[in-house]
Amino acid sequence: MSDEQIIFNVIVCAGNARAKAFAALEAAKKGDFNSASSLLSEAAEEILKAHEIQNKLISREANGEGMNVTLLLAHAEDHLMAAILAKDLISEMIDLYKINSKGDD
């Protein structure tokens, strides 16, 4: 697999994670906290996949098999960090929705 294909896999996983996190937020808005929790778990799995790819790239570099730092690689890292941040913030927002929904009882 080429370096570009490996990098695109990070972008795909990060995009999937971000989409799942925002779907979780939508579920929470509707009061469907079971779906929200499940979707957040799926987002976490996608982030883990991206991290595993990232760790392989770091290991390669540590073993002297570095790759050129390209705009595409920087773009992938940006996507991954944005997905992680989105998931973390959305998790907190869902907790707030849960607290707010208890006040409606």
Rank of each mutant, 00 (worst) to 15 (best):
residue 8 F to S: 01
residue 49 K to N: 15
residue 90 I to M: 02
residue 20 K to E: 11
residue 89 L to K: 07
residue 98 K to V: 04
residue 34 N to K: 15
residue 16 N to S: 14
residue 15 G to S: 05
residue 28 A to D: 03
residue 42 E to K: 06
residue 32 D to W: 03
residue 79 H to Y: 07
residue 65 E to F: 09
residue 72 L to N: 07
residue 48 L to N: 13
residue 43 A to W: 00
residue 32 D to T: 01
residue 23 A to R: 11
residue 15 G to W: 04
residue 8 F to L: 07
residue 4 E to Y: 05
residue 25 L to N: 06
residue 56 K to F: 06
residue 99 I to G: 07
residue 66 G to V: 09
residue 77 E to F: 03
residue 51 H to N: 14
residue 49 K to E: 12
residue 54 Q to P: 00
residue 9 N to V: 02
residue 23 A to S: 12
residue 49 K to M: 11
residue 14 A to D: 03
residue 39 L to K: 06
residue 42 E to F: 08
residue 72 L to I: 10
residue 20 K to Y: 11
residue 99 I to R: 14
residue 58 I to N: 04
residue 53 I to S: 06
residue 58 I to P: 03
residue 67 M to Y: 14
residue 71 L to K: 08
residue 55 N to E: 11
residue 104 D to E: 13
residue 82 A to E: 10
residue 46 E to A: 12
residue 19 A to T: 12
residue 73 L to F: 08
residue 99 I to E: 14
residue 18 R to F: 07
residue 48 L to A: 13
residue 4 E to Q: 12
residue 6 I to T: 11
residue 87 K to T: 07
residue 15 G to L: 03
residue 21 A to N: 04
residue 87 K to D: 05
residue 95 D to H: 10
residue 26 E to Y: 09
residue 24 A to D: 03
residue 9 N to G: 12
residue 101 S to P: 04
residue 16 N to C: 14
residue 49 K to Y: 07
residue 3 D to G: 06
residue 66 G to S: 15
residue 94 I to C: 06
residue 12 V to I: 14
residue 100 N to E: 12
residue 57 L to E: 02
residue 13 C to N: 10
residue 39 L to E: 03
residue 39 L to C: 02
residue 60 R to G: 13
residue 26 E to N: 14
residue 42 E to L: 10
residue 28 A to G: 00
residue 9 N to M: 13
residue 96 L to F: 12
residue 90 I to Y: 03
residue 20 K to C: 11
residue 68 N to D: 13
residue 3 D to S: 12
residue 28 A to P: 00
residue 78 D to I: 01
residue 79 H to D: 01
residue 27 A to N: 04
residue 16 N to W: 09
residue 59 S to A: 15
residue 32 D to G: 02
residue 12 V to E: 03
residue 2 S to I: 00
residue 25 L to R: 15
residue 104 D to V: 10
residue 100 N to D: 08
residue 69 V to F: 07
residue 50 A to C: 06
residue 53 I to T: 13
residue 101 S to D: 13
residue 21 A to D: 07
residue 77 E to W: 03
residue 61 E to D: 11
residue 80 L to D: 00
residue 48 L to G: 09
residue 31 G to L: 06
residue 17 A to Y: 06
residue 61 E to P: 02
residue 9 N to W: 07
residue 53 I to H: 08
residue 74 A to W: 04
residue 17 A to N: 09
residue 85 L to Y: 08
residue 32 D to C: 01
residue 54 Q to R: 04
residue 36 A to S: 15
residue 104 D to R: 14
residue 47 I to L: 15
residue 65 E to K: 10
residue 23 A to Q: 14
residue 84 I to A: 08
residue 70 T to R: 06
residue 39 L to A: 04
residue 52 E to N: 15
residue 68 N to C: 04
residue 104 D to N: 10
residue 99 I to H: 10
residue 54 Q to V: 00
residue 67 M to F: 15
residue 46 E to K: 09
residue 71 L to I: 13
residue 66 G to C: 08
residue 100 N to L: 15
residue 101 S to K: 13
residue 79 H to S: 05
residue 2 S to F: 04
residue 84 I to W: 05
residue 29 K to H: 14
residue 103 G to C: 08
residue 28 A to V: 02
residue 64 G to S: 09
residue 80 L to T: 02
residue 70 T to M: 05
residue 71 L to P: 07
residue 63 N to M: 13
residue 89 L to G: 06
residue 81 M to T: 10
residue 103 G to I: 11
residue 20 K to Q: 14
residue 23 A to H: 09
residue 1 M to A: 12
